[in-house]
Amino acid sequence: MNMELSRRQFLGAAGAGVAATALGALGFGDIEAAHAEAIRTFKLVNTTETRNTCPYCSVACGVIMYSKGDRTKGEQAEIIHIEGDTDHPTNRGTLCPKGAALLDFVKSDTRLKYPMIRKPGSDKFERVNWDDALDRIVRLMKDDRDANFVEKNKDGVTVNRWITTGFLAASATTNETAWETYKVVRSAGMLVFDNQARV
């Protein structure tokens, strides 16, 4: 990037700062001067920004995720920092102690990476591939549904319900996932269906 461009962008940013607080009026001297070794290089330089909302509570604060690599370009993207989105009307850039540590959720040591199966009576999880895991799940579901589906109640009324397998929906999935889940669960006739609203 040429110096003139970066200088203009800097001044633009400084101008925006004036609008926010008088910070823009800090008496900055020669901006091309060397970086003091005390001051760490700004770590968000040249990262990709993505807007998101905090997945924890229902305030739904706006956050910006900064990543190395850009998913929209098909690159591997590693999120390196998450902070509040000042443009968001509710949180105005602020975050609570959970939101401010969202990066730790994304990168938690206990994030799951592979499907696992625990056989009856076993004391351990074993890795399994997705196909086998999913085939096993639908086999278990279908066997149960075929065995226990109630088409008519004792009065002969069509009830078409399946109450021996239940589904507990999440509380942080998207509305779109919720709708898709609704379709899948209800079309199978499931009635044992709940979410986390109660707790």
Partner: peptide, 9 residues
């Protein structure tokens, strides 16, 4: 009951 599916809960 036979089965239970927990989606993030």
């Amino acid at each position: 009951m036979t089965g239970y599916l927990c989606q993030g809960f």
